[in-house]
Structure formats: C-alpha cells, structure tokens
C-alpha cells in the first residue's frame, strides 16, 4: 500500500493531477470518519475532509517521501478539525461548562445530524448516544480517543500525528477513558 501511494505521489509531483484522485479514493473513508468522529457532524466533517485533501495536494512537495503518508494526511485533517472546534466555540457560546460536570461543554446539548443507512437503524440510538458522548469530551482528549479507538492507531503514531510527546498521549488517553467511563457507564 505505501509503495503504491509513493508511486502516486511521485506522479503528482511531476504534475499528474489525476494520480491524486487515486490517493483520495484510498483515504477518503478514513479521513472522513476521523473528521466525523471528532466533529460529530457530517456536513462539517465533509468540509474538513475535503479541505484536508486539498491542503495535502497543495503542500505535497513538503511531504517527506520516506515517511508514512497517512500519518501526514491525518495530521492535516486532525489539525483542521481541532481549529474548527476552537473557532466555533466563541461564535455560538458553546464553551460554557455545564455546572456539575467535569470539563464538559454545551456541545452535549446539541444533537448531531448523523444519518446512517437503514440497515443500521436498530442501533441508531446507541450510535448517536456514543457519538454525543465522544463529542462532549474536551478537544484534546477527543482527538486521542478517536485516533486510538476508531482509527486504531498506535500510541507512537498518535504522538506523531498530534506532534505531542508520547507521555502526553498516554495521559490524554487515560483522562479521555476516565471521562468516557463516567459518561457511558449507564448506557
């Protein structure tokens, strides 16, 4: 897989834009899922995922071909989503903490606009509950939890994607898990 991606990147660098389409095809679901689980909203997730691929294209010459492309791409996508969360807060006054909760915000009050295929309708309610609880997590815990448990990445890779020390990744995962334990124990 990495060899194929590297071949396509070299074609893109030579000016073959259509080769980038193959890269988008390969990673679109992973990147969209990452954005959706962090943002909790399909429309925003589509915007951010598209933007991530566009930035990836525009900056492709700065990608070090010896490194893993997905790590680089996930980093772009995660940063865009985190920026989005931070920018959104003051606009809608969503950063006020709910009294009696520990670090949770008013995001919890907003339903996500998740639309799932019909065959998943039976678990729709549970899926929405879980996503709502993920979206309630403070952004720094949310990104590590999504990268570890939904994208199933290693702690080392998460450390590279977020550009934070491994010890910080571990601490955030511990705290994120503690928050989720509290939020999901009665589900």
């Amino acid at each position: 897989m990495e060899a194929l991606i590297k071949k396509r990147i070299k074609q893109v660098l030579k000016g073959d834009q259509s080769a980038y389409g193959e890269i988008v095809e390969i990673y679109k679901d992973k990147v969209f899922q990452l954005c959706f689980r962090i943002l909790g909203n399909r429309h925003e997730a589509e915007d951010m995922a598209q933007e991530a691929f566009i930035r990836g294209y525009v900056n492709i010459s700065s990608f070090n071909i010896d490194l893993k492309f997905s790590t680089w791409l996930y980093r772009i996508a995660t940063n865009l989503c985190i920026d989005r969360i931070r920018k959104k807060k003051p606009d809608y006054y969503l950063d006020a903490e709910v009294s009696g909760t520990d670090g949770l915000t008013m995001y919890s009050q907003i339903a996500s606009d998740t639309i799932l295929p019909e065959d998943e309708i039976e678990s729709l309610e549970l899926q929405e509950t879980i996503q709502r609880e993920i979206t309630k997590l403070p952004e720094k815990y949310r990104s590590v939890i999504v990268l570890k448990y939904i994208e199933e990445l290693s702690l080392n890779e998460i450390s590279e994607i977020l550009d934070i020390p491994l010890g910080t990744v571990k601490t955030r995962i511990h705290r994120g898990r503690e928050a989720l334990r509290h939020q999901l124990r009665n589900v």
Partner: peptide
C-alpha cells in the same frame, strides 16, 4: 465497557462524489 462502546461505532463512509468534489 466505555472502550467497547466507542469501538462499536460503525465504520462510516465518505459521502458520494467525495473524490470528484475534491478533484
């Protein structure tokens, strides 16, 4: 249980025409 629930979220796909829209 919290971990299992988060892992149980279904894998979702990018919207149709995603690649065309990016290109």
């Amino acid at each position: 249980k919290a971990i299992a629930l988060v892992q149980s979220t279904s894998h979702i796909q990018a919207p149709s025409n995603f690649t065309e829209n990016v290109m």
